[in-house]
Design a protein around this nucleic acid. Sequence first.
DNA 1: CTCCGTGATATGAAAAACGTATCGATGGAC
DNA 2: GTCCATCGATACGTTTTTCATATCACGGAG
Lengths: 294, 294
Amino acid sequence: MDLRRLRYFVTVAEELHFGRAARRLNISQPPLSQQIRKLEDEVGAQLFVRMGRQVTLSDAGEAFLGRAYLVIREYEAAMEAARQAEKGATGTLEIAYIPPADLHALPLLVSKFQKAFPSVNVVLRSMHGLSIPHAIQSGRVKVGVVRLPLEYPGLETLSVVRERLSVVVPESHGFARRRQVKFSELAGQRLIGFPRSLAPAYYDVIAGLCKSHGGFVYAPSQEVETIQTALSLVSAGLGVSIQPRSIEALCRKGLRPAPISDSPACAAIGVAYPVGARQAVLDNFLSIARSIAR
Amino acid sequence: MDLRRLRYFVTVAEELHFGRAARRLNISQPPLSQQIRKLEDEVGAQLFVRMGRQVTLSDAGEAFLGRAYLVIREYEAAMEAARQAEKGATGTLEIAYIPPADLHALPLLVSKFQKAFPSVNVVLRSMHGLSIPHAIQSGRVKVGVVRLPLEYPGLETLSVVRERLSVVVPESHGFARRRQVKFSELAGQRLIGFPRSLAPAYYDVIAGLCKSHGGFVYAPSQEVETIQTALSLVSAGLGVSIQPRSIEALCRKGLRPAPISDSPACAAIGVAYPVGARQAVLDNFLSIARSIAR
DNA sequence: CTCCGTGATATGAAAAACGTATCGATGGAC
DNA sequence: GTCCATCGATACGTTTTTCATATCACGGAG
C-alpha cells in the first residue's frame, strides 16, 4: 500500500503530459496510462480530458487533485507519527504512583521527563501501592512509582530517591527540641504506622531496624493508611511516627521532626516496570529515572 | 491503489485478532499477516505487539491508527468530491458576459442556476462581446452570455431572452409623450448606436429593420460602446438611440423610452458554449438556460 | 501528404498478493 | 507434567496485478 496510483495521478496532473510524468516516476508510459485509467474506474469519474495531444484536468480531476494532496500528506504524517511514537518522542505515558511519592520523587521524575520529551502526554494516577503491580502488568499504566523494595514476579524496579528516617513528635514531646535521636530511644514509644500489607518489604525494613538498632519489636499501636492521618494523630498526642526525612515539608504547627541518627537511607521510592518491556516511552522514562538516581 | 494495507491494518487494530480480521476481510490469515508485516516495514515502526497469543497495538500503532482513519476518510471524500464534480453539482462555472446582459438575462440565469446548484462556485467576468468566443474556446470561461445571433466556428448558442425595441429620446423630444412610434418615423433622426464590430449580427438585424420597415439606411451619427454612454448622449440632446425594451429600467430623469410598435422581438441575449463540450456544470447551466427560454 | 509527437492498445515478463498446508509457540485442561 | 486447542508465522504453488517492449491510431507541423 503505497498510494501508488495517487502519486501517479498527482504527477500527471502536475505535468499534464503522460510521457514526462512517466519519466519523473521512473516507469514507462503505457503502465502509467493504465493506472490512471484504473484510478478513474475506481473513483468513478473521468479525471483527465484527453483531446488530441492535449491533456487537461477535468472538473472532477481538479476537485480530486486538491484532496489527493491531503491524502498523501496525511499518510506521510501518519507514518511519521508512528515513527516518533516508536522512538518514544510522542505518545502517552501512564504513571501509577503511591500518594507519598508526590512529595519528592514524582515531581522530580515528571518535570525532568517532560523537559526532555515535551510531546509525550503524561497521565498520573494515584493508587494504592498494592494495586500498582497489577495495573502495570495489565497494561493500564506503563510504569509505577512505588515504595522499595518491591518483590513481584514479572516486575523490575529501579531506585530513584533514598532517604533516612525521622521520627515525628508533637511539640510537647521530649524529643521536640532534640537535634537527633537514636533507634534505641524509640523503645517504649507509642508508634503510629501503616499496615504491613500496604508495603510489606518497607514495613519489614523498618521493623528490622527497630530490632537490630533499637532492640525492640516494631509494633505500631495505631495503623493508618496515609501520612496525613498519621501526622494528625501525632499532633493529637496519640504517639510518634517514623517517616522518611522529607516529611519535614509536611510538618505543620505543633509537629516536630527529629532525625534518627543511626538510620540508613532505607526509605526508598523508585519505579517499577514490566521485565523486558520494549516500549520506547518507558525506556526514555527509565533513563530519566536513572539519571536522577545518579 | 485501494488503500488495501491501510484497511487491513485498521481491521486488525479493531479486532486485535488476525484470524477474525482475516474473516472480516474475506481473505485467509497468512496473507493478512504478510501485509501487516509489509506495512510495518514501510512505515518503519512495529505497529502490533505479538506476545504469545495476545495481539496489542503498540504505541506506534496507536498513533498510526488515528491517522489511518483520517487518510481513509480523506480518500473517500476525494472520490466523492470527484463524482460530485463530474455530475456538475460542485466545481466552478466561469461565465463571461457582455455588460448589457446584467440587466435581465444574467441575473435570471445566475439566480436560477445557483438555486438549483448551490455548491457550484460561479465566477462572473464582464467582457467585450468580441473577446468572449475566444475566452470560451481557450477554456478561460466555460460559457458566455452574448448578444444573438452569433456566428462563430466551434460555438453553439441558445437564446434566453428576446426583446422588442424602443427608442430612447430626451424629455424635450417630440416622441417624449408618444405611447409608441414606428420605424418609419425614425428616418431623419440623429441616431446614437454601437460600432458594428461590437456585435455584427445584432447590428445587421437593426439595420435590416430600419431598411425594411422604415425605408431608410441605419447610419448612427455617434458610435458609443456602452449603453450608459449612449443614454448620456441622448440626455445631452445629441440624438436618439434604439435599444432593447428593458432599457426602461435605466432611463433616469430627462430620458423617455418609446416602444417601437412594429419591432419584432429581435434583441436577443443568449448563451454561447463550445460544441460537444462534455462538462456537467455546463450541461446543467444550459438546461437552466433552456428552462428560462421556455 | 509525410513526419513527428503523443496517448492508447497488445502481449509477454516480473512482481505482488493470495490460498492451502504446516510449523512453532503459548495457554489451559487433565 | 503431558496433551490439546488456539493463534500467528512460515513455506510454497497459484492467481492477480503491474510493468516494459513493441505497435497502433490520431492530430498537428512542415
